[in-house]
Design a protein around this nucleic acid. Structure first.
Lengths: 232, 232
DNA sequence: AAGTGGTCTAGACCACTAG
DNA sequence: TAGTGGTCTAGACCACTTG
């Protein structure tokens, strides 16, 4: 079997959609018809169509048929890792602070907790070639059994910090990206003496019950970071 | 049939992975064993496993078995639309320029064309509540039959501009995000009189042969935009 | 009533992995 | 050699849509 039948079906139909032979909203031949066309059973045809549906090319309406999907024009996938981006990679970190704090009203609200709940505060600086390029703050809900080993924390990305206490596959993550002018404290940490923009990335992590388990803010020197995304 | 058998299988196994009953690398019971456990045929079991594989929970090794996947810790999905973001939405646009130009060396390189190829240049301002919030530049490879209707261009997002000449499902898109300090020209367009950071978003579009068909840069006032992403 | 997709079965043969 | 996943079939019954 050089190439399975269902893959030939997938490739053929995908090609027709890419070349606009089949346009969004058009009906695809019925599963019975495709089976006859390719000399395949209905289950084999369905396997191919399931793949196309999964890739976002088609959708089906029970009782009616399969149809070409309208493309998602504005979806992008971005791989964000505090320590690595497309123009830069962190080669040194400095742990400024690890402490247990009681949250203020704003933080308690963000983390959906009361003000007497313990929170771990971690502040770090990221360096590239000896230059400080980012100032990083993390707040983690303290969980019993959570390892606060400084050596581990210093170089960990945010999800990694939680790997001991939360099953990572249950983690839901949110990202917010914006630009800002640095305040005096950050200017000092990042050795900024002239006008410079910051790229700010906020992360928020939720457990499987959709409760926040941590949030973080990273302030990058604008001249040391580019985030990249792509469709698909 | 209240809930199909294959969905029960999916939910059971997904639950076990989320609760760390099954950990990354662990083997899942064989398809035969699962079939006996759920009183289902092997094809039904496989349908469930295919869904889990597609969701990124498991993977399979032929001849060995199905295994729990290590989670993707840094993948985020972001919906980017020039005109809409999480804190702001453009309600007016102003077309500054639509013209056909010959690219300079830099642009020709970016678009992988020779300097005698025609390029459409579009410059726009985006407004929210009467305030200019973004300055937008687009370069499109001129294709014969391309509609340059000013009314259409003024309010279109980048992929929409190409909808007449390129099958949109074949479009591959790239995004680059960074922060910068505004230059004099942009300060003038965006009425910036004090220190302010810009969020800059570059878009590059490719056709099905992976040749660039357009690129765009949008300069947002840092106080008027936040981009958001999420896992899944 | 005829056609469509959704679910499911009980087999089959293959290629691969492991002891 | 026994067990595993990968492909495939030829049926079946169901719920749904359309005329």
């Amino acid at each position: 079997m050089v190439s399975p039948v269902y893959l030939r079906i997938v490739e053929d139909i995908r090609e027709k959609i890419s070349n606009a032979v089949l346009k969004p909203g058009d009906a695809i031949p019925s599963e019975k018809a495709l089976g006859e066309e390719y000399g395949a059973s209905r289950m084999t045809v369905r396997k191919g169509l399931a793949i196309l549906a999964n890739e976002g090319y088609i959708y089906s309406i029970p009782g009616k048929g399969n149809f070409v999907q309208k493309p998602e024009l504005n979806k992008y996938c971005i791989c964000y890792d505090e320590m690595n981006n497309s123009i830069n990679s962190v080669d040194k970190t400095k742990l400024l602070e690890v402490s247990i704090i009681m949250p203020d009203d704003k933080l308690a609200g963000e983390l959906q907790i009361t003000r007497n709940r313990n929170v771990i505060l971690i502040r770090r600086l990221f360096y590239t070639d000896g230059t400080p390029v980012a100032y990083d703050i993390k707040y983690l809900l303290y969980q019993k059994g959570m390892p606060i080993v400084e050596k581990e924390i210093a170089h960990a990305t945010f999800p990694e910090m939680l790997s001991g206490s939360v099953p990572l596959l249950a983690l839901r993550k949110e990202l917010t990206i914006y630009a800002a002018v640095p305040g005096e404290e950050i200017k000092k940490y990042l050795n900024i003496y002239h006008e410079l923009a910051l790229l700010v990335v906020e992360q928020k992590l939720y457990n499987s019950e959709n409760k926040p388990v941590g949030m973080g803010i990273t302030y990058y020197r604008g001249d040391y970071i580019k985030l990249q995304g792509a469709s698909q």
